[in-house]
């Protein structure tokens, strides 16, 4: 696959389509089947919530979709591209230009201010938004020059979101984004994610334990034992502010 392939996406296709995706860790007695054949299609611009107990395979799927890990077998495409066929360098480019990540523990660079953390990404992206603008989107225009140690957990997570969206990614992966936050702060963060999805048309995948989050998603995928146990399309999407916590 050439590097330019990442520039020429067929946007009429679904963002992700996978068939019989498996992931096996280890071998022999320590062998663990994290994914046991996942068939799933995720249309572009949707906000998708992945629910399930610990060890059900949802984070593993997220990592594979984000190009951090590779599947053991099965097919996986990103629009018209075969994600499974990309080498390490292409995966780096894929993450660099198309993907944003938000983690449970924020993963900010402690030595950079909020603004600089965002600039870390805008400096290498092709058509990023202004870093200050990204911070404004998450309501942190007044905290630009604070270091992570000077920010609350919720603020740190919002910086992480600003950093993830500043490159205008096509897809945003969020692994337990509210896991370390109290309910009020968690709701603010989810609200920001919903706005990003609405205003920028970014496809968002949220992995979470919190079942109530499902109400704000277009699509809810339930995981159990490495398989999809249930897939629900919500007719009505609630605002993050209105969901029960």
């Amino acid at each position: 696959m050439s590097d330019s392939a990442l520039q020429n996406l067929d946007l009429s296709l679904p963002a992700f389509a996978m068939q019989g995706l498996t992931k096996v860790f280890g071998s022999g007695p320590s062998r663990v089947e994290a994914l046991r054949g996942v068939d799933l299609t995720i249309p572009a611009a949707e906000l998708v919530v992945l629910l399930g107990p610990s060890g059900s395979g949802k984070s593993t799927l997220l990592n594979i979709l984000g190009g951090l890990d590779s599947a053991t077998s099965g097919s996986l495409s990103y629009f018209n591209l075969d994600l499974a066929a990309m080498d390490e360098r292409q995966l780096t480019q894929y993450r660099r230009q198309h993907i944003g990540f938000v983690f449970q523990f924020y993963n900010l660079m402690p030595s950079l201010t909020a603004l600089e953390n965002v600039q870390l990404v805008t400096e290498i992206a092709e058509s990023p938004m202004d870093a200050a603008e990204a911070l404004a989107m998450v309501g942190l225009e007044n905290r630009q020059h604070h270091f992570p140690a000077q920010l609350s957990g919720g603020e740190q997570q919002r910086v992480a979101i600003a950093r993830a969206i500043a490159k205008r990614p096509r897809v945003l992966f969020c692994d337990e984004p509210t896991g370390a936050l109290d309910s009020k702060t968690g709701r603010t963060v989810l609200n920001v994610l919903q706005e990003v999805n609405r205003e920028l048309g970014t496809t968002i995948l949220i992995v979470t334990h919190a079942a109530s989050t499902a109400a704000m998603a277009h699509r809810v995928i339930h995981f159990a034992d490495g398989r999809i146990s249930k897939e629900v399309e919500n007719d009505q999407v609630l605002s993050a502010a209105d969901i029960d916590w």
Binding site: R89, T92, R96, N107, M109, V121, K167
Partner: peptide
């Protein structure tokens, strides 16, 4: 290690 992994996840190359 975690910061470095985060940088790689954000799309920085190995050398960066």
């Amino acid at each position: 290690a975690r910061d470095l992994a985060s940088l790689r996840v954000m799309g920085l190359t190995k050398s960066e």
